[in-house]
Design a protein around this nucleic acid. Structure first.
Lengths: 201, 201, 201, 201
DNA sequence: TATGAATGAGTATTCATTCAT
DNA sequence: TATGAATGAATACTCATTCAT
């Protein structure tokens, strides 16, 4: 469904996306009904299907959109001139800030794990973060900045897992510390976890 | 519902629990229908309600049961004579082994985050792992084994987040490395993350 | 199912009947489940079917039993030597006393009106009260005690309707007056309603 | 559920109410399934819930609606200039006519007595008829039209009980007399029952 | 007699999706 | 674009009844 949207149409669609993100974040994907989204947006249920083919399509659009913004945020934070480990730290901290601001995002990523019916939509881009980090880890190993005997995939997953679990803790309100402290802690934690050579020097 | 169960009854109930755990692990909680559980167990649909009040009640029972076993596994793995950081490492590694063996468990814990309707059941014991680790972290700080300027709560969450995210990666098949290697990696990772004093010495 | 019951068996059966009557009176026939009856009697659900073929069979037995007792009570109260109108009064007052003591009874008769699936069981004896009163009314008309221009069937139904509706009001607690006053009132009411000749003399 | 209904919507809703009233009258509330209602109305099962929250909500709406109409019918029939006893007679006769025409109504009121789950909905307005009659009875007593030594509440219940039980007899087909005769009989019966002073003069 | 286990048809309710206007 | 109406498949849960012991 490719629809030519007017200005008003684009706004309405964005409104639905925003509202949906909000609700997904609160209740999760499954328990959020289309009726809820429309109610919250103050429109009739039928209108939903003017903008989206299915509930899943809305979901996919939301995920892609968020993913794009997250990667952009990470890109902005990483100094191209810095060494790989520093860039990992920068990316991690930026991610924490992003996740803190866009708590909805995590509700989406969660679904990936729980509901296998979402797999096609999600696996499409599931590995990109792993690849991103993996590239940096390998680069660091080649540069002698990281010990070469650690499994680069596990290391990349360690970074990702830390970032994403702190994202969740932030979302669930289990963390009361100021966001800057959390970001710094996460940055430190992953760098220490990676065991960079100079850190022990 | 307090029911007097015979030996046969207890077995049947356990069978339903096992089957449900299996299915929840495969498809997730929501998409698994009671009919599926009964079909898989080879009993009539109505029998489910002889043993459980609701689907949610089964879920709650499953979670409590698994939680108990996980903690027991952790307890067995931790050497009471060892220093706190070592015990954290031992607990983390044991958890990874446990999660690898009982992938079903994680399907459940996932739900905790996604579906707020599960909250009452789950938050009941959600914090116990945090508390467990928190206690050890504090102990280590008092003993001078960990720097006292790191936030103990964040440190505890770091440990938990690492363990749980690797649990998920294992479950989703994103990790091909042998389980022992993964466990060791996780143990190393969290210990490095905690920045124990002698580790940098 | 004709079963040879031991002494204990008869008691158990009676207990089930009593408990059922109680529950039917409280919640009505439909909403009372066999499980409720058994729970209240403290026996297993399976035992119910040792004593009764079906839920409906229990119901039928209960109705017949109560009907018998009500008619017996009425019979006792009516002076065979008295005039028909006096006997109607006596029967009505006795019925009120009976209904007040056996509130459960009315719950049963209610069903007759609501649930047509009960019809076979109930219509079997539904008209006996009408016939009883009808006989007395006709007798009174022949004796010149009641005006002959009133429809005897309507008159009989007037008596029955009054008695049964006061029975219900008693059951539902809508009446606070002492039972003796209520009985006397009902007796007066039906006699006045019948417009006996001497009453206006 | 506040829904903005179009003309078509209001008609459909009314249709469902009518059909339901019909079925309730035939089979009673419990045994009538939502599927029956929808089948009879020729619509899909799901549509029911566009117009009503639950089966019970439909029931409540039906009762309130009918109650309103009955009271209106009574109001129309009662001559404001007439004495209280005459107005009671007029109201009673009007009620009989109404009940004869809307037999469905009584199927509902029956439930009130049998099924305690309906209590909240029904007791809400259960006493209004009593109050209506009670007011008239008291007025008549003050005017010296009725003896002051009869219990006004019992008298009011006598009127109501007569009317409602004849309503039931009409519904169950136990009465073959023409409706006008029945109404007149009921009017006479309650007036005689009330024992107005001039009636015995 | 009595128990706990098992059955299976039945029922209200939900919800994504489509339709007519 | 937008609305309210309509669909129908799906699903948790109930409950009278039967069975094995």
């Amino acid at each position: 469904m490719v629809r030519q949207l007017t200005e008003q149409g684009r706004e309405r669609k964005q409104q639905l996306l925003d509202v949906a993100a909000e609700l997904f974040a609160e209740r999760g994907y499954g328990p959020t009904r289309i009726a809820d989204i429309c109610d919250a947006a103050g429109v009739a249920k039928g209108l939903f299907y003017w903008y989206f083919d299915t509930k899943e399509a809305l979901f996919a659009e939301l995920v892609r959109h968020m993913r794009l913004r997250l990667r952009r945020a990470q890109g902005h934070a990483m100094d191209p001139a810095a060494d790989p480990v520093t860039r990992i730290r920068q990316g991690s901290e930026a991610s924490i800030h992003f996740l803190a601001e866009h708590r909805a995002f995590f509700a989406l990523v969660e679904v990936e794990r729980t509901d296998e019916r979402m797999a096609p939509v999600l696996h499409e881009g599931a590995g990109i973060y792993v690849d991103d980090v993996l590239r940096l880890v390998t680069e660091a190993q080649l540069a002698g900045q990281l010990p070469s005997d650690i499994d680069p995939t596990l290391a990349a997953l360690g970074v990702l897992g830390t970032v994403s679990s702190f994202g969740q803790y932030l979302r669930s309100g289990r963390i009361s510390a100021p966001i800057d402290d959390v970001a710094r802690f996460v940055g430190d934690w992953v760098v220490r976890g990676l065991a960079p050579v100079q850190a022990t020097a």
